Amino acid sequence: MTATTPHLVVVMGTAGTGKTTVGPLVAAALGVPYAEGDGFHPAANIAKMSAGIPLDDDDRAPWLDAVGAWAGSQAGAGGVVSCSALKRAYRDRLRAAAPGIVFLHLTGDRELIAARMAARQGHFMSARLLASQFATLEPLEDDEAGVAVDVTPEAAVIAERAVAALRRL
């Protein structure tokens, strides 16, 4: 990827890593549209997560397909979408829908992420689900196109580091 190549990026990571905050910043820096992955969840998924019940693979399948369909529709033009993409199988499903996609894995200390989740208001994702998210998380493997960026700094710094790393791919 070069600075002039349209980027198709999934901003991934557990809840509370800042996907919704960092994703639009990365999209703006790359000059491509942004889509909020939470907006692709069926109502049943949101109800389940609001009740503190973790999603299973069957719950995630239609959501991943919707995210993948959006990403596939951006092929050639580029785009950034947030999606936890916690498992390799989920990322494989997204890659099948949108070949050439790359992943921006937002990583951080569990305590920092838990504190951020506790401070946010109006989000359906219960902080009680963070442990299940970390248990499910399979970090990017060496053969997966993507980068990992630590979420300790402020969002603008995270986005700047992310864009620089993505441009090196």
Rank of each mutant, 00 (worst) to 15 (best):
V163G: 01
V67L: 07
V67R: 10
T20V: 13
G68C: 01
S126D: 12
A98Q: 06
Y90S: 01
A155R: 12
E138W: 14
T14M: 05
A127T: 00
V10P: 07
E144T: 04
R167P: 15
M117W: 00
V147M: 13
A27N: 08
V163Y: 06
A115Q: 05
P54T: 14
R110H: 09
V147H: 09
R167E: 14
E138Y: 08
A164T: 08
R60L: 01
S82V: 02
F134A: 14
D38H: 14
G16Q: 13
A115N: 00
M125V: 08
S82N: 10
P33H: 02
L25Q: 13
G146N: 03
L129H: 05
P42W: 01
A156E: 14
G31C: 06
A165I: 01
Y34L: 15
S73Q: 02
D109A: 04
R128P: 07
R88H: 00
I113A: 00
L166S: 04
V10D: 08
I101Y: 03
T136E: 15
R60N: 10
G13K: 12
A28T: 00
M12P: 12
A69N: 07
G79M: 11
L129N: 04
E160Y: 03
T2K: 15
T152Q: 09
Y90N: 06
R128I: 14
R93K: 09
A44I: 01
A69Y: 08
R167T: 15
A165V: 00
L30G: 11
A29G: 04
A119Y: 11
V9G: 08
M12K: 10
A118N: 07
V80A: 12
E141G: 11
H123I: 02
H123K: 00
R95K: 02
D38P: 05
L140E: 10
A156M: 02
A119V: 10
R88S: 04
A77W: 04
D143A: 06
L166M: 10
A3P: 08
R120C: 02
A119R: 12
G16N: 06
V151S: 07
H41G: 05
A71S: 09
E144P: 03
T4Q: 11
D109C: 12
I101C: 06
R128W: 12
A77Q: 03
A127H: 00
A98W: 01
L106R: 02
A28R: 02
A155K: 09
G76W: 04
A135V: 06
G78N: 03
P33L: 06
G13S: 13
T136P: 15
K87M: 09
A35R: 05
P153A: 14
E36D: 15
A119L: 11
V81Q: 13
Q133H: 13
S50V: 14
G39W: 04
L104S: 15
A165N: 03
G146H: 00
